[in-house]
Structures are given as structure tokens and as C-alpha cells.
Design a protein around this nucleic acid. Structure first.
Lengths: 230, 230
DNA sequence: TCCGACTGTCATAAAACTGTCACGGAACCG
DNA sequence: CGGTTCCGTGACAGTTTTATGACAGTCGGA
């Protein structure tokens, strides 16, 4: 899953600069022009990291930072603060209020990207290294590749998303309907039984070579990524 | 068993719109116009999901949400919050207070219906208790798995529900009829003695390997999850 | 346009699970 | 002690659910 970055900045030109550079680096980018919009955006689609300008209309960056830190579900959300040169005291307060890093304007795009990566790596290793693991299974999100015991496994797009969802919730049982919601989307009009077919293809791909089955079927309940059936 | 949706909304026109669309989709719909009526309705006939307007007379949606979350019997009740656009901070507070999803007015009926479906399907181990324990027995609802002394035990769907019921009321004795009502459902047409068969299978699965029996038979009364007397 | 990869559906086979029964043994009663 | 009542078992057939193989339609490149 590509990391999602929210840029909170009122200067449109800067937003576009950041968007361009971050997207170039494989991040998904959304933007908000002021504090209210930022909080709304966070509630709507929680990003993996926020780039936050200190000087903002309506609500200051500091205040947003504090509000995000207060709420349990956003407490761990990494924040990189943008400060103007000379706002040293502000900078300190920024770190004080819970930002993970700060960048002083003017900055080079590559510097920001590097810091974004660094902070992400620190905060969300799974996202930064773009990989998920379950036992001998490794999924590299960036390269979109899956290996088992080091051996590459080819998966179709749907199989990949399905496995990714399982790997994000290892061991948990999901009904066909839940999987349809999560993997196919809320508005998909597909027979629940179709999930069976993809489970079968996924199993076949994963277990190729007579390896142990990694997917547990729970009768009348659904499927789970699970090494030992019983 | 058609799911029962409670719509809490003071605007009559909107209530009718929702009622029409939800009933069209096969849901049973009841409505309450304010917070007090909502809480009364929940107490009277617990719905499977609540669509809750944030702005309500008397008691706000937020407050209702909190109150429902406080009570054990309604803690796991799914709630979809309706917020007006621009009530962004309220929206955030809504999620904060424990809503499962929110929809911003104006919304399309089909969007709401899709979200209702999705939320209903989504397991909610985060709020509902997701694991039960009795001695060395552990039941993980999300993973749908039972272990005894760490060793996984495979149970059929009925055995699982039966054990779950016992684990929710440890030590208590239930008659066959009570178990049929609770585990098979009120409208099940099954011989009471059938319970015996499942008790036997459950015992066999749990005690596999010569472990002590965890189910006590109370002659002429029923069964209980309990270590043997003496 | 042709081809290969990928999807969604079916029909059918294969498992897993259920509900009942009959029988035998255990518990309880006087 | 009998006589009853109640529970534990093993077997079994019917049902439900899942696995499988096949197939046609789509889509996006070569």
C-alpha cells in the first residue's frame, strides 16, 4: 500500500510543488489549505504522515498538532512541520507540541522527501519499507512482489490485494462479504462465491510445490491467513 | 432474519427518505425523533445498527453515542453518524466518541445503504469483547479460534457457538431448551436431545488428549461449563 | 486484430457438519 | 434391590458448505 501523505499548506504553489515531488516518489498525496480542512481530511481518510505548515489561516499548525496528539486514533500520526527561517522559537514549540521533524523554508524538495521517508521509516516500518511479512511469506508493496522462502510467487492483481488484506490482519477470519467490501470495494457487485475462486487461485500460487496451506477455511465463517489449521 | 435499523433523526422528510430506501433493501426500520426516544427505542427493541444524526433536540447524537458505548449490552452496537457538511470538527468528535462510520449530508441513499451493509458485515472486535477465557481455555472471536493450554482446537460452527455461550456464562447451568434458544435460535425446530450430541462432540474436541472434562452434567437440569465437582 | 492473462460464474464433486435413533449404562427413587 | 428416568455413545443418512475444473467474457498489450 502506498503511503498516504497529507499536505497542509495554504500557499497553492508550494502545495503543487510538494504534490509533484511526493507523487513522483510513489506517495499518495492529498492537500488541505487550512486547519479545519486538515482536520476534516484526517477524519475522512487518515493519512500515514502529515506535512504541516506552521503558519496557517484559521487554526495554527501548532494547534492542529496538539489536537491530533490529543486524540487516541491520531496520536501516533507522524507530523513534519514546515517553518519559516527565523521562526526558531516556533520551531522549538513545534517539536514541543509533538511534531516528529521540521523543515525550514525554503527547502529543497528532495530534502523534504528524504525526511518524509525517514520519519515514516521510524514511525511505520511496515509502510516505509513497504513490506509485510507473515512467517516465510514476504510481500513487498513497492515492488509489488511476493516471495515464500525467498522464492518469487506470481499473483494476479486481485490475488495480490486479497493476500495483502490478509497479511494486514493475520489470523483473522473474514467472511466472503467482508472480503468483498475490503478487496473488491463497497460497491462491487460480485457473487460472494467468487471469493472462493480467488482463494483457490491464491492457495495454488502460494502452495505451489507442495508447501503447507497458509489459508484456513473456517466453515460458515470465512477465511483467514493462518499457518496451522488446527 | 432481516436486520433492524434504528434511524434517529428529527427531520421527518429525511427519516422517510431513509426508511424508504432501507426498507427497499430489505431492512426493518424504526425511527426516533430525538435522543430520549432513541434511548427508549434501543431499550425496547435493540436494533442491529443505528443511523444517528449528530444534531438532535434534547440530547445530542454525540451524547447518545457515548451513553450507548458505556453500557455493556449496547457497547458493540454499530453506529453510523450523520453529519452536516461543515461540521467537520463534530465529525471528528463523532468518530472519537465511538461511531463506526459517518456520512456527510447531503448524501445519496445508495451510499448510506452501502455503508450500512458494510458496517453490519464488519466484525467489531475492537469494541465488542473479542476474546473469552476460562481457565486454560481461550476463545478468540476475531480469529475464530479456540485454544487449550495454547494448543489450537478445531470446532464445528455449532460447537463453537455452544462453547461461546458457555464461556459467556461460565459455571452456569443451562437446560437443553435454554441452549437451543440461545445457540440454535428461538425458532429452531430441533430435538432437545440433539444438544447431547453436540455436548459430546464438544467434550471430545476439548478433552482430546485425555484432559479433564470441562463440562459438567447436571442431571435433570442441564449442562454447565465447569470443572468437575471435587 | 490476435493472444495471453485475468475475472466472475457455474455445475459438480468432495468434505464437513447436523440431527436422530437405538441401545446400554448410570443415577435416582421408593 | 427393581423400576424409572436420564445421559453417553456410536452409527448414519441427509444437508450444508466448500473445493475444483471448466468456460466465456474482458482487457491490454504485442
Amino acid at each position: 500500500m502506498t503511503p498516504h501523505i497529507l499536505v497542509v499548506e495554504d500557499e497553492a504553489a508550494l502545495v503543487e510543488l510538494l504534490r509533484y515531488n511526493l507523487e513522483e516518489e510513489g506517495f499518495r498525496v492529498s492537500a488541505a489549505a487550512d486547519g479545519e480542512a486538515a482536520l476534516a481530511a484526517v477524519a475522512e481518510d487518515k493519512p500515514d504522515l502529515i506535512v504541516l505548515d506552521l503558519m496557517l489561516p484559521l487554526i495554527s499548525g501548532l494547534e492542529i498538532c496538539r489536537q491530533l496528539r490529543r486524540r487516541p486514533e491520531t496520536r501516533g500520526l507522524p507530523i513534519i512541520m514546515l517553518t519559516a527561517r527565523g521562526e526558531e522559537s516556533d520551531r522549538i514549540r513545534g517539536l514541543d507540541s509533538g511534531a516528529d521533524d521540521y523543515v525550514t523554508k525554503p527547502f529543497s524538495p528532495s530534502e523534504l522527501v528524504a525526511r518524509v521517508r525517514a520519519v515514516l521509516r521510524r514511525a511505520r516500518p511496515a509502510l516505509a519499507q513497504d513490506s509485510l511479512g507473515y512467517g516465510e511469506l514476504v510481500m513487498d508493496l513497492a515492488k509489488r512482489r511476493v516471495t515464500r522462502e525467498g522464492r518469487a510467487i506470481h499473483l494476479s492483481p486481485t490475488e495480490f490485494r486479497l493476500l495483502q488484506y490478509f497479511m494486514e490482519h493475520p489470523g483473522r477470519v473474514f467472511s466472503r462479504e467482508q472480503l468483498l467490501d475490503a478487496v473488491w470495494g463497497l460497491d462491487a457487485e460480485v457473487e460472494p462465491r467468487t471469493v472462493d475462486a480467488h482463494i483457490r487461485r491464491l492457495r495454488k500460487a502460494l502452495n505451489d510445490g507442495g508447501k503447507a496451506d497458509l489459508i484456513r477455511t473456517e466453515r460458515a465463517a470465512g477465511y483467514a491467513l493462518d499457518s496451522k489449521p488446527y
